[in-house]
Design a protein around this nucleic acid. Sequence first.
DNA 1: CATGGTCAAGTGGCA
DNA 2: TGCCACTTGACCATG
Length: 298
Amino acid sequence: MSHNVGYCCINLTLQKSDNITTNRDMIQRTFLERGVSYASELALQNSRDLIKILEWNAANNIKVFRVSSGIFPWNAKYELTDLPDYDAIAHNLKIAGDVALRTNQRLSAHPDHFVKLGSEKPTVVDNSIHDLEHHSAVFDLMGLPASHYAPLNIHVGMNFSTDTVNRWLAAYDRLSDNCKKRLVVENDDKSSAFSVRQLYYHLYKAIHIPITFDYFHHQFHDDGWIEKDALITAAFTWDVRPLFHYSESKNLNENVSGNPRAHADYVFSRINDYGMNIDVDLEAKAKELALFKYRSLT
DNA sequence: CATGGTCAAGTGGCA
DNA sequence: TGCCACTTGACCATG
């Protein structure tokens, strides 16, 4: 029926013209040398630029945007309140959230792939929970809803097994209420990892967690479900408008050789929403430029 | 100042 | 046992 399309994390236009970015980072050695005070400096600049990106989105009628996980460098190593600039950063995040809410932008985040709630290693699970709580705390500071309307999307990762499912569910139980209310899970592209079908039967059935349908990943691991069935099944797991991911193969579309799973700079086809009302993140390397090109497709 | 190598993370495959 | 690929964009050293 209809779909709103957005982009992810980086605005190439603003980055090029004014060095506006939310991804100022440092390597480990620099963190060890300069510590949380420098992390705080970078986070302050990143949070300030998040406001500018969201204002730019509003001016360009963009209603779906993924917030970068790179705003806080080395956030695994400290708490937000440890940062010397915490008050100013929290203020920036609140302003950013206000911009998003006022201009009707739907925001989400996608914590990195080293979040592994089902890991066999307790330290990995602890670090994963810390990472998710960090993201949820940022959304709290932004004033975003504690619901799947502002989702934190993760992969289960690893190989599918009932042991993995049980460990994952046990770790999920340890999350804060707001974090649980935002958490959603995405299908993987690896044949041994979690498909839409497996997420549905083993996680959704257990805890009613929504499933982020990734069109591209599904092509590599459909687990016997055609796209339409997988998408509609995933859509009905959501208690708000679903938010899905769309990308196309760089290899097949842009005349290069390499991993067919690599994302193309742009997308080339209309997204089939199968009559559902959905939001879609374009995962294309040309970011907002890919979104503009998509809008011009007929 | 441009370029290209390096760096983070966890897992699984493979020697 | 341990190394490499996987992925991706920013960092940072080199020239």
